[in-house]
């Protein structure tokens, strides 16, 4: 896929359920109980179980792979973790939406400004990436 400055990339929506968080805990080795126990999550002041910030960033990377036409093209990726993604204990889960705009294309690659939201809230701060040209 050829990217040009100003391109608005097709929005990607991913549904996150509790089962996804359990699977991610196992795959990543991050077993912090705030990502699977309501009891622990609420005891530290959270509304309930939240997604791993790195899981949400992995969803942004998944969107980048889709836009780039395959894996292995991300040369830089980063964000701040600003708002938690609260994942309900039901079969429906919650939707995370990833949007992207190409800011600039240089020899270093395509700089992509991302927006990652859950409901009407941005859950990642200044998420950005560079895709190999």
């Amino acid at each position: 896929m050829s990217l040009s400055a100003g391109d608005v990339l097709p929005e990607q929506t991913y549904t996150v359920t509790r089962a996804d968080l359990v699977r991610y805990a196992g795959a990543s080795g991050d077993f912090n109980p705030i990502h699977w126990s309501d009891r622990v999550a609420t005891s530290v002041g959270l509304p309930g179980v939240i997604a791993h910030g790195m899981y949400t960033l992995a969803l942004a990377a998944r969107a980048l792979d889709t836009w780039a036409g395959g894996p292995g093209r991300v040369v830089e990726l980063g964000c701040k973790f600003t708002k938690p993604v609260v994942v309900p204990d039901d079969d429906t889960g919650v939707d995370v939406v990833v949007r992207g705009t190409v800011k600039e294309v240089t020899d270093a690659g395509a700089q992509v400004a991302l927006e990652v939201t859950c409901g009407d809230q941005k859950v990642l701060g200044m998420p950005r990436a560079v895709l190999r040209a």
Binding site: Y14, Y24, M54, A58, L59, A61, R62, L64, G70, P71
Partner: peptide
């Protein structure tokens, strides 16, 4: 890759 819903092509790991 399964845990994050990513595509794995047998060559490159998911970025995170």
């Amino acid at each position: 890759a399964r845990a994050t819903g990513s595509t794995y092509d047998g060559e490159s790991a998911p970025a995170t």
